[in-house]
């Protein structure tokens, strides 16, 4: 589904990704872990198409298409979703209006029926209920005045509504207390499906207790330096990222 090969990317003159390769198949959950500054968020942003990032080498294909030449909105319509680390506030834009505009824009691109406001309200209310959110958040401006937990839940709500094929969660656990973390994880787990893949970017292992990944990758200095199963995350938690670097240098000298 997603194939990243030898990806190099930079912001301005600063190279951040330095030859990252990764393959994700439908139904899989991959966790990307790594120390601050390793390039975790850059990976998510490059995949979603955030302006300001320049890919200098390598390729990214999604369902056989060159993802990198698509505009962000076209990537969304193709099924890529990025849950933001810092969801933005949009004063004056009603949350329901925003969600419907997004869903219908995607439907339009895919040649699917657009939803009228009654159909949409019915759908969004179901999703809100399933997420354990207060329906009142639908009537407010997008993320405006939302608590950290509400913002992250709003991201997962959008994911539930847009039903992406590849969901990228960028530090969705940051700033959440344990109850909010569990709720967000439950929302994500409910979306796990054979045709849907997840890329869970996180600094801490804690989230992975609740969203158990099939694969764990350690990103350091712009490349994946170690891959394993969920057990790798627990070892990282026990030993820290320095442990990966030591193992790496040991292998190099062996």
């Amino acid at each position: 589904m997603l194939k990243i090969e030898n990806l190099h990317a930079r912001i301005g003159a600063k190279e951040i990704l330095k030859g990252l390769s990764l393959e994700v198949k439908p139904g899989e959950v991959h966790a990307i872990m790594g120390p601050n500054g390793a390039g975790k968020s850059t990976l998510g942003n490059v995949l979603a198409g955030r302006p300001g990032y320049e890919v200098t080498q390598g390729s990214v294909t999604f369902d056989g298409k060159n993802l990198l030449e698509l505009e962000p909105e076209a990537r969304a319509a193709a099924g890529v979703f990025l849950a933001f680390q810092y969801p933005v506030e949009i004063p004056g834009v009603n949350n329901t209006y925003f969600l419907r505009a997004a869903l219908n824009a995607q439907h339009k691109v895919r040649g699917e029926q657009e939803l009228d406001s009654m159909q949409f309200l019915k759908l969004v209310r179901e999703k809100v209920k399933a997420m354990g959110m207060t329906p009142e958040l639908l009537n407010r401006a997008v993320n405006e005045g939302f608590s950290g937990g509400e913002k992250k839940r709003n991201e997962v709500l959008q994911m539930a509504l847009l039903e992406p094929r590849l969901a990228i969660l960028d530090e969705t656990d940051s700033g959440l207390d344990i109850d909010a973390l569990k709720q967000v994880a439950a929302g994500v787990n409910a979306l796990r499906a054979p045709q849907r893949a997840f890329l869970v970017i996180t600094h801490y292992q804690r989230l992975l207790d609740y969203i158990v990944p099939d694969f764990v990758h350690v990103l350091a200095d712009g490349r994946i330096v170690e891959s394993g199963d969920a057990q790798l995350a627990r070892e990282l938690e026990a030993h820290g990222y320095a442990w990966v670097r030591e193992r790496e240098s040991a292998e190099a000298s062996a």
Binding site: R50, P72, E73, V88, F98
Partner: peptide, 15 residues
């Protein structure tokens, strides 16, 4: 705000 524009686009809303 470029960040807000990107947020909307990343949800599928054309520029």
């Amino acid at each position: 705000d470029e960040n807000v524009l990107f947020y909307l686009r990343s949800r599928g809303v054309p520029l």
